[in-house]
């Protein structure tokens, strides 16, 4: 088995970082009232998607190579929705959007998709 490509390692790391930042946003979105639940849920969705993307970039990924970009796209869409709905601080969402965009680029690399299709466990 060939070693995991560096792009996948970076993609997984960025996914984890994005997920952790999104979990911080979850905490920041909760203001003690049930009215804040939609924003809490939105940030939690972002965190879940980032962790899913991070998992997609590992050798134990449960999805095909071409599916990782779909996960990354859904993740990025959730971040942009959070920006539009003001789910968290704008600068924080901007950081997440950049991380999401980089993950999309990594997921689109033929190196990643071919390795995942051929070598995943």
């Amino acid at each position: 088995m060939t070693p995991v490509p560096k792009k996948m390692v970076f993609g997984a790391a960025l996914g984890l970082i994005g997920g952790i930042i999104a979990m911080c946003a979850v905490a920041a979105a909760w203001d003690g009232t049930p009215d804040s639940m939609p924003l809490v849920g939105l940030n939690m969705l972002i965190a879940c998607m980032f962790f899913a993307v991070a998992g997609g970039f590992t050798k134990f990924t449960p999805v095909q190579g071409s599916t990782i970009i779909v996960l990354a796209a859904v993740c990025e869409a959730a971040v942009i929705l959070s920006i539009l709905y003001e789910g968290s601080y704008f600068w924080l969402n901007l950081i997440l959007a950049v991380i999401g965009a980089v993950n999309i680029l990594f997921a689109a690399c033929p190196t990643v998709t071919s390795w995942v299709d051929a070598q995943r466990i």
């Binding site: 071409s66 970009i69 779909v70 990354a72 796209a73 859904v74 990025e76 869409a77 959730a78 942009i80 929705l81 539009l84 999309i104 680029l105 997921a107 689109a108």
Partner: peptide, 18 residues
């Protein structure tokens, strides 16, 4: 065309989410 697909999917999801 994966990047184009990703961009279109993102935009579709944004519209549906909004």
């Amino acid at each position: 065309a994966r990047i184009n697909t990703a961009i279109t999917v993102i935009l579709i999801l944004i519209i549906l989410g909004c």
